[in-house]
Design a protein around this nucleic acid. Structure first.
Lengths: 242, 242
DNA sequence: TCGAACCCTGCCCCAGGGGCAAGGTCAAGT
DNA sequence: ACTTGACCTTGCCCCTGGGGCAGGGTTCGA
């Protein structure tokens, strides 16, 4: 008869593939239409309407099993369900927008991997003229600490950010950074070790939990990077232990 | 060693499940870390960084196979790829927004299933006082025509919208609608058939492609609804053929 | 010393189709 | 009358991105 359309036409109308239409038959979403004399499926306007409904719900991310339930739900149930789905959709759009922002940061830098506090601390180090190697070491250390114990990490980074404003500490920090490349028997090492120890003892009373000390961080991160220590640093650590 | 974290900590840090982490190992996205003495995986900061990258890309809808490629692509390639992905993401957000609108229409009416032209035509019929049964019949007919031949349907609906502004045609249309429920031997049927034929012959010269006539539409949709015809309409069709 | 909370591998399961094989059918042109 | 290309049919296996569960071993704190 004139008004009966084939599966291809139906699929085109709804913007889906023929395969999808057959899939919906298998799942019981769309009733199988009658066949013509040669076995072709012949669809009616009802099927077209149902198919558009199915696609609208499926596009909204509703699982096909749930779509089937909704297709013959009473209007009130359907209305409530649609409100739910719409809420979910709004949510999903918001999450995609956040993903876009994060994606932009993937190009940018470290903000994606560490907390904002740590990121500003790393920027402060950069301003101070600390080497990129050292900054990587710090960053990896903080990531580790954040995964191991976010609460402790938050306390420590606050202390560190305070500490790095102290000119004496800044000078020591820069010298430690520079010492990385010194020969292990460099004459400046014992003096640096002494000054570091003096500084620590003079500040020990000051803060309860001992602030995380640079080589300590380096050790934490030691596994993650081959360049995490150097002969001079090893020597320095030894001098400071004595 | 102090800085080595377990799979659970790593997964929590990145906001994924343990299962997902192991999945990324299998797919070669994340290198397998060393194991400790009891066979547990022990992760470093590098892994945490990689995992966050992986999730950021995966959240953006990038297939895992492509993520693997991107993880060790050179910066320029990565930048270009990110631009692509972001474009796609924007696109997807737009499509979800459209889905939300369509979802709202699922509650509303027929706008979802027929073209805007047809929807306004149906509204015009409603204003005219045509029965809902007849409007359903028309709607299904138009859906069928749109699937079978969208271009022809567009021409026809334009003609129909013009036609329905003609008071004589409006009167005939309403009478046909009412005739549905008449007994097949109703005395008014022959007169209605004659007036309809007269109207058509007087308008035939006027428009080239013969405008689709009401019972014709009904026949098109005959398969889709049990109520698509009535004894009186059958009789009317027969009277008009003679 | 016990229970809770971890961790391991291995296996099968799901949605939502895509792809391909191996046919049958239909309409148009020649 | 034949061919060609565009349709249609069923059936089967494939993919992604994991989830769930079984059937173990380990570690940590009370």
């Amino acid at each position: 008869m004139a008004g009966m359309i084939t599966i291809g036409k139906l699929a085109d109308y709804a913007g889906v593939t023929i395969k999808a239409v057959r899939h919906y038959h298998e799942r019981g979403l769309l009733t199988e239409p009658d066949r013509d004399s040669s076995g072709y499926r012949r669809y009616t306007a009802r099927h077209a309407i149902d198919l558009v409904k199915i696609r609208t719900l499926a596009d909204a991310g509703v699982p096909l099993a749930r779509v089937r339930e909704l297709l013959d739900a009473d209007p009130d149930t359907l209305t409530a369900a649609i409100a739910d789905i719409d809420h979910d959709l709004k949510d999903r759009i918001a999450r995609l927008r956040r993903t876009r922002l994060q994606l932009a940061q993937l190009r940018g830098g470290d903000q994606l991997f560490v907390s904002p506090d740590v990121a500003t601390y790393l920027d402060a180090l950069r301003d101070l003229g600390v080497s990129e190697r050292q900054i990587r070491l710090e960053r990896d250390g903080w990531i580790l600490m954040q995964t191991a114990s976010p609460a402790d990490a938050a306390v420590w980074i606050a202390e560190k950010r305070e500490l790095i404003t102290d000119p004496a500490f800044r000078a020591l920090y820069l010298e430690h950074d520079a010492a990385y490349d010194w020969p292990p028997d460099d004459a400046r090492l014992p003096a640096l070790a002494k000054r570091t120890r003096d500084w620590f003892t003079s500040h020990h009373s000051h803060t309860e939990t001992r602030p995380v000390h640079n080589p300590t961080i380096a050790q934490l991160a030691a596994q993650s990077q081959p360049e995490a220590t150097s002969p001079a640093w090893d020597r320095l650590a030894q001098l400071m232990r004595d």
